[in-house]
Computed example of a mutant assay.
Amino acid sequence: MARKGRTFVVIGLGAFGSAVASELARFGNHVLGVDADERRVSQMSATLSNTVILDAGDENALREAGIDSYDVALVAIGRDIEASILATMNMRMLGLETIWVKASSRTHHRILSKLGADRVILPEQEMGRHIAQMLHNPLLQDYVSLGNGFNVVNIIVPDKLDGTPIADLHLRDTFDLRPLGLMRGTEYHACVAEDIVLRREDKLLLLGKRPDLRRFGDTL
């Protein structure tokens, strides 16, 4: 049957790899799960489009499984750095368009980057920073890093700002921040003219650099 859209192969079906693979499948993508552990493959067989038991360090086995026809690879092998490196090299040799790899250390990160991985992920460190940001400021519900120092944050409007026009916060002039909009219950309101009056429990979306966002957060 013909595949539609981008196709994904996830190498390594541990906790991280299986979580990513399951979400990709839930979004309606064609996902192939690969692991040398028969038990892990069996657990994911009903969730993913296809699963296969094989050693990702074996280029010929990968080619025979048709992995060279996939668009995107996530190498999610855990602590076995050698296996992770070999799998990454094989993904590159097979000509996959996009390769993301999970790293277990900064040294591992540097090696994978040299091998040409499009993105190298340190999940524990990235999640640790994410959680620390939210613990530091309880009003920060979530944030997304856009690169080059810019972030979009989702801040819960506190009681002290209830009834305050957004313009009175002087976000652009004082903090060099751009208000993108806010969620009030299930309704989205744009903040183009900054004429909206804030209400307690609104979720305000702000764009800016981390130091500026932190300066504003400290005033709350």
Rank of each mutant, 00 (worst) to 15 (best):
D173T: 04
F8D: 12
R106M: 12
K160W: 08
A132C: 03
I11F: 02
I99R: 12
P158Q: 05
R129Y: 15
Y188S: 08
N154M: 10
T186R: 15
G28N: 04
P165F: 06
R79I: 05
T174M: 11
E23H: 14
E64G: 08
L122H: 07
A25N: 11
K4S: 11
V9M: 04
V20A: 02
A76H: 15
L24I: 00
R106K: 13
L94D: 12
L86Q: 04
G116P: 10
T47C: 12
A65N: 01
S42G: 10
L161H: 13
L169E: 07
I111E: 05
I77M: 14
E201Q: 08
R40K: 14
G5I: 00
G147A: 12
M127A: 09
H130V: 01
M89P: 05
G163W: 08
A83H: 11
G208E: 12
S45M: 11
V153R: 07
F150E: 09
L206F: 13
T186G: 10
I77C: 11
H136T: 13
A103V: 07
S104A: 15
G78C: 12
D35F: 05
V52N: 15
P158H: 01
I131R: 04
T219F: 03
T107D: 10
K114G: 09
I111N: 02
R63V: 03
R178G: 10
K102F: 07
L207N: 12
D173Y: 00
P123N: 10
Y70S: 10
L198Y: 08
R92C: 11
A190S: 09
D218Y: 07
L206M: 14
T219M: 11
L198T: 05
D159T: 03
N29I: 00
V120K: 07
D168P: 03
A2D: 14
W100E: 08
R40T: 01
L146R: 08
I85L: 02
L112M: 04
V20F: 01
S84M: 00
E38S: 13
S18A: 10
I77T: 00
L213G: 07
E187G: 13
V152F: 09
V197D: 05
V101F: 03
F27C: 13
K114V: 01
I121E: 12
A36Y: 03
R106S: 14
L115K: 04
G5Q: 03
C191N: 07
K203F: 04
Q141R: 06
P138W: 01
A65I: 08
V197Q: 02
I131K: 02
V72T: 04
D162N: 07
V20D: 03
L198A: 02
N151F: 09
G57S: 14
N60S: 15
V101S: 13
L115A: 14
V20L: 10
N151G: 10
G12D: 11
I11C: 06
S22A: 06
R39D: 14
V197N: 15
N90K: 01
T88F: 07
V192R: 04
A65G: 06
D176W: 13
E38D: 14
V153F: 09
Y143F: 05
M93E: 06
L207E: 06
A2C: 06
N60P: 05
L182A: 03
T186W: 05
